[in-house]
């Protein structure tokens, strides 16, 4: 298999990713060289103690942050070479984001939050409406469509975030500690839902966590330590 073909067959391929932060003039290495390949349809967890580089790594592979060194291919495209509008449009069309908290625009209703990306993409109104209803049903929030986020519980808010991330049907969903602000039970429930959707839609899910309960639900667990991969297990 040529390199190119290999990159196209995978959702994500990273090569020797390094990321240094500058902190008061001192170079702080956050990621120290990661080679990783994620295949389509995977449901992978990136785990590791706080400060091990999970967030940094996710930001780099989504193009939210630039790498100091190394390359990232997303669906065969060299993401690390993209800039500005191209990068932002690519991200919009291919990656769904779920953040730890405050994911949603508080002045927009649940429906509007979910609809937002499709507006950016220029999807027509009827289609938007159809897809919003569909996905809200999927995450069990069809009755909350007109609510504003601050009126929802933490778990409900994260479900809206999942709906928003998925509604434009990206190939990859990235979730950085999506359960960190939820209690264990709710967090586990959220993960079950994500796993269900992964199975159902075939979308690739990568999420970070340091919660055992959450970790257990992943099919592949990649462990980071001091910015390096310390373990990569796939369950049979």
């Amino acid at each position: 298999m040529s390199n190119k073909m290999k990159n196209e067959a995978n959702i994500i391929v990273t090569k020797n990713i390094k990321k240094n932060y500058r902190d008061n003039g001192i170079e702080v290495p956050a990621v120290r060289g990661i080679d990783l390949t994620i295949k389509p349809g995977e449901f992978a967890a990136i785990v590791g103690p706080s400060g091990s580089g999970k967030t940094t790594f996710l930001n780099v592979i989504s193009g939210l942050d630039s790498a100091t060194e190394g390359k990232v291919w997303l669906k065969g495209k060299l993401l690390t070479d993209m800039k500005g509008k191209e990068l932002s449009d690519f991200r919009r069309d291919h990656i769904g984001f779920i953040f730890q908290s405050y994911n949603l625009i508080p002045v927009l209703t649940v429906e509007e939050n979910v609809e937002y990306i499709m507006l950016l993409q220029g999807v027509d109104k009827a289609e938007r409406h159809r897809r919003v209803l569909e996905i809200l049903k999927e995450v069990g929030l069809e009755e909350y469509a007109d609510r504003l986020p601050p009126k929802l519980s933490g778990g409900q808010q994260q479900r809206v975030a999942i709906a928003r991330a998925m509604v434009s049907r990206p190939s990859l969903i990235l979730a950085d500690e999506p359960t960190a602000n939820l209690d264990s039970k709710t967090g586990a429930g959220l993960l079950d839902m994500m796993k269900e959707l992964n199975k159902k839609t075939g979308m690739t899910f990568i999420f970070s966590t340091h919660d055992e309960m959450v970790m257990k639900r992943a099919r592949r667990v990649i462990t980071l330590k001091d910015g390096r991969i310390a373990g990569d297990e796939t369950k049979k």
């Binding site: 939210l64 932002s88 449009d89 991200r91 919009r92 069309d93 984001f97 953040f99 405050y102 994911n103 949603l104 625009i105 508080p106 937002y116 990306i117 950016l120 993409q121 928003r164």
Partner: peptide, 10 residues
């Protein structure tokens, strides 16, 4: 943060 989210999603 909100502007961050808005920019992250495109």
């Amino acid at each position: 943060r909100e502007y961050g989210v808005l920019k992250a999603v495109g």
